[in-house]
C-alpha cells in the first residue's frame, strides 16, 4: 500500500538521446505526494522530453522512472492525468463528449463521466459551451476543455506540459485557480512552463532545466537564496560610506545613479536605510524586493538561454 509519504515520482539518472543529439543528460529528482512541482526551462531545454519519458511515451536511453510506485506509467494509466505540450481536440466532437470520452478511457463509467464533464465545464465557466463542437471554440476555450479532459477522472497525479501557453491573462488566472483547487484536493501536480511568474506563485518545489540538465532542484525559497540578498538604490550622492555597515558584504555601481548593495544572510536592510538617513545620502529609490525566479534563472543559465526563456 502506498502511504502518504511515498513519493509520487522518482527519476533516477534519466537520459535520452535521439541519434547523436542528447536531449536529456541524466536528470534525477523526487516529487513528494501532494506537492506542486514546476519544470522550468526554455523551449527545447528538455522539459517535454523528460515529461514524455515520465509517461512512457518515450523509452529512456538510460536511467529509470518510478511513478506511483511502478516502473512504467502504462501500469498506472488510470491514476494519471496528462495534458500534452501541443494542444488538439477532435474538431467534430462536442466539449462535454470529449471530456467524458477521455474520462471513460481512464476507466470511468459512462454516465459518471458525462456528469463529471458537465460539472467541470460549469465550474470553470464553460457551461454554455458544453454542447458546442470543439471546432467552434476559441483557442483558449479549447485548451481549457483539454485541461478539464485531463483531470476529469480525478487522477492522483496530474502532469501538465505548458498549460499556460496560449491563454489570455483571464484564463491564465482560471487555470491557476484550477491548479490551486487540485492541490487542495491533495492531487500531486507537475507542470512545465517557461513563464517564471506562474511557477513562483504556484510551486512548492521546482526544477530548472537548461540544455537537458537540471541546474537547480528545490523549493522556491531555496532558489531565491541562490542569489544573495541585495538592495538597489538610486542616489545622486556617494554611497561608499555604506560599506562600513555590519552585514553589507559588497557595493557596486550599476551605472548612472544606480548602485547595488549585497547583504549577508543576517544583514539588515533597515540598518542600511537608517544609515542612508543618518549619513545624509539622498535617496531617489530604495528597492529591497526579493530576487525573482527570473533573476535566479538568469544567474544559473546565463543570459543567452534566459533571454529565450523569459522573453
Amino acid at each position: 500500500m502506498p502511504t502518504a509519504s511515498d513519493p509520487v515520482l522518482v527519476l533516477d539518472g534519466l537520459r535520452k538521446t535521439f541519434g547523436t543529439f542528447t536531449a536529456v543528460h541524466g536528470i534525477s529528482l523526487t516529487v513528494p505526494r501532494g506537492s506542486v512541482y514546476g519544470f522550468l526551462g526554455p523551449n527545447g531545454a528538455g522539459t517535454t522530453t523528460t515529461i514524455r519519458m515520465v509517461l512512457s511515451i518515450y523509452k529512456p536511453t538510460a536511467g529509470s522512472v518510478t511513478i506511483l510506485g511502478q516502473p512504467s506509467a502504462l501500469l498506472v494509466r488510470e491514476r494519471i492525468g496528462y495534458l500534452p505540450e501541443e494542444k488538439g481536440l477532435y474538431k467534430k466532437m462536442r466539449a462535454r463528449d470529449i471530456i467524458a470520452y477521455f474520462a471513460s478511457l481512464k476507466g470511468m463509467a459512462s454516465a459518471a463521466a458525462f456528469r463529471r464533464a458537465d460539472e467541470l465545464l460549469e465550474k470553470y465557466g464553460l457551461g454554455e459551451f458544453a454542447r458546442r463542437k470543439c471546432e467552434a471554440l476559441s483557442k483558449g476555450m479549447g485548451q481549457k476543455v483539454q485541461v478539464l479532459a485531463s483531470i476529469a477522472h480525478r487522477p492522483e497525479f496530474v502532469i501538465l506540459d505548458e498549460p499556460f501557453s496560449g491563454l489570455d491573462p483571464v484564463n491564465q488566472q482560471v487555470l491557476e485557480d484550477l491548479i490551486e483547487d487540485l492541490k487542495r484536493e491533495g492531487t500531486t501536480i507537475i507542470f512545465s512552463t517557461h513563464i517564471m511568474e506562474h511557477a513562483e506563485r504556484l510551486c512548492d518545489r521546482l526544477v530548472l532545466i537548461a540544455r537537458g540538465r537540471a541546474v537547480f532542484d528545490g523549493t522556491v525559497a531555496e532558489a531565491r537564496r541562490i542569489i544573495p540578498r541585495r538592495i538597489v538604490i538610486r542616489t545622486p550622492g556617494d554611497p561608499q560610506r555604506l560599506r562600513g555597515i555590519a552585514g553589507v558584504t559588497g557595493l557596486s555601481a550599476l551605472g548612472g545613479d544606480r548602485h547595488e548593495i549585497i547583504l549577508a544572510d543576517d544583514g539588515d536592510a533597515d540598518a542600511v536605510l537608517a544609515a542612508c538617513f543618518r549619513d545624509g545620502i539622498p535617496l531617489l529609490a530604495f528597492d529591497r524586493s526579493e530576487p525573482t525566479l527570473r533573476d535566479v534563472f538568469l544567474r544559473l543559465v546565463g543570459p543567452d538561454q534566459a533571454a529565450e526563456a523569459v522573453g
Binding site: I80, P84, E86, L89
Partner: peptide
C-alpha cells in the same frame, strides 16, 4: 497524430 491527440490517447490506452 498531427494534433498530438495521440499522446493523450496513449497515456490512456496501449
Amino acid at each position: 497524430k498531427s494534433n498530438r491527440l495521440v499522446e493523450v490517447l496513449l497515456s490512456s490506452v496501449t
